[in-house]
Design a protein around this nucleic acid. Structure first.
Lengths: 215, 215
DNA sequence: CAACAGACTCTGGTATACAGAATTAAGCGC
DNA sequence: GCGCTTAATTCTGTATACCAGAGTCTGTTG
C-alpha cells in the first residue's frame, strides 16, 4: 500500500490525522462509528501512538468525540449544535472580512483575486469537480488578507466541523456562492468594513443546506 | 512525589495537563521555556506518554508551541498576536452576551446573579484573593446563559490564552470590572442584545493591561 | 575566531505488556 | 423463550524499553 499514507517525512501523526479527517469528511465513517485505536493502527500499518495522538487532535477539532475509557467515535455535531456552530462561524467570518477590509494588503488581495478568478473560470467551464478546493482556497486567501492567524485557525476548525452542513454540488447554489465571494471581495477592496462583515456573515447562513440543520 | 499529581482516578493525562497549565498561567515557567518530555515525566512520576499527550493538548489550546523534532516550549503569544487574540475574544464575548440576552433563561440568570453578588460581596469586604475565580465563574455562568456550548469552549480557550494580558490585582480595576459585569447582566436581563454585545466587547478591551500588549 | 567533528540530548516512533473498565457472549434458572 | 449473572473478550490508559535520526552543544583545530 504505497499511497496508504505515503511514507514521507512529515510527522506520522499528521498523516494519520489527515487520513482520518479525510475519511470522516467524506462520509466514509458515519456518525457514531467507533474508531478503535488498534484497528486503525493496524490498518494503516503504524503503531498505536500516532493514532492516539491523531484522534486526540481530531477531538480537539470536534470531528471526533473521546469518552474516557471508551474510546473515540465519529461525532458529527448534534442537531442543536449545528446552529450554534454556524452562528459562531458566521460571527468569525464576519470579523475576518472586517479585518480584511481594514488592512486590505494589496499583494494578498491580488492573490485573492486570482483565486476568485480561478473559481469563476471553472464555473464558466461548467467544471464543478474542484469547487470544494476552490472554495477552501478562497476562504483561506481571505483569511490571509485579514492577517489574524488566531482567527484563521479557529475558522478552519469550524469550517471542518460544519462542512457537512453545506451543499457543494448544486450548480445554482455554487454560482450564488461565487457571486457572494465576489461581493465580499469588492467590499474588502473598497475598505467597507461594515459591508464586508455583513456579507461574510450572510454568506455563511446562505450556504447552509436547510435540511442539514433541520433534521 | 505523593502530592506530585495525586493518584486519583481521573485520567493521568488530564492531571498532567492541568498541572502544567496551572504552572504556565502562574508564570512559573516563563515564555520560551523548553518543556522536555522526559524531564517532566520524571518530575511528575509518570511515563512520557501522558506528558506527550498533555503537551499536545496544551498546544491545541495555544499555551504551548510544539515544533516538530524540537519539542514543546511555553508560548506566550507574540506581541502582534496579542491584539489578534483580544480582537477575537472580544468578538466572541460579544456574541455570547448577545445570545444570552436573546435566551435569558431565568434559572441561569439567577445563577449568574448569585455569582455577581458573590464577587461584589468580596470586593465590599476588601477580599481580593478569590477575584480570579469569581471572574472565571462570572464568565462561565454568562456562557451558560447563552447556551452555546461550542462558543463556550472557544471562549474558555481564548481566556486561558489571554489571561496573562489582564491585570487582576489592581483594586480600582477590579471594581471597574465588576461594575461592567453588572452592566452586562442588566442588559442581558433587559433582553437588549445590542447593548449586551457592545458592553461585553468593551469589557474585554477595557480589562486589557495596556503595557501587556505594547511590549 | 570561524568552521567542523564528535558527543550528547531529545523527539518521534516501534514493540510489548498489563491492569482494569466496557462490552459481548454464554449460561442458566425459571 | 426471557431476563439476569457470569465468564470471556476487547479496548483503553499507562508503563518500559529501545532506537534512528534531528538538533544542540562543546571543544578543537587550522
Amino acid at each position: 500500500m504505497s499511497l496508504a499514507i505515503g511514507d514521507a517525512h512529515t510527522p506520522l501523526t499528521k498523516m494519520v490525522k489527515n487520513a482520518l479527517r479525510q475519511r470522516i469528511l467524506n462520509g466514509e465513517f458515519e456518525q457514531g462509528t467507533r474508531l478503535v485505536e488498534g484497528r486503525i493502527s493496524e490498518e494503516m500499518g503504524v503503531s498505536r501512538m500516532p493514532v492516539r495522538e491523531a484522534l486526540r487532535e481530531l477531538a480537539a477539532e470536534g470531528l471526533v468525540k473521546i469518552i474516557p475509557r471508551r474510546g473515540a467515535t465519529v461525532s458529527m455535531p448534534a442537531v442543536d449544535q449545528k446552529m450554534d456552530l454556524i452562528e459562531v462561524r458566521a460571527t468569525l467570518e464576519a470579523l475576518n472580512a472586517r479585518l480584511a477590509a481594514r488592512r486590505k494588503d494589496p499583494d494578498r488581495i491580488a492573490a485573492l483575486q486570482r483565486v476568485l478568478a480561478a473559481g469563476e473560470a471553472d464555473i464558466a467551464k461548467g467544471d464543478f469537480s474542484e469547487m470544494r478546493a476552490h472554495n477552501d482556497a478562497f476562504h483561506t486567501a481571505l483569511g490571509e488578507v485579514s492577517g489574524n492567524a488566531t482567527l484563521q485557525d479557529l475558522i478552519r476548525t469550524l469550517r471542518d466541523q460544519t462542512s457537512m452542513l453545506f451543499k457543494q454540488d448544486d450548480p445554482v447554489k455554487v454560482r450564488e456562492t461565487w457571486r457572494e465571494h465576489a461581493d465580499i471581495l469588492r467590499a474588502v477592496i473598497a475598505g467597507d468594513e461594515e459591508l464586508a462583515a455583513i456579507l461574510a456573515s450572510r454568506h455563511v447562513y446562505n450556504a447552509v443546506e436547510p435540511e442539514a440543520v433541520t433534521d
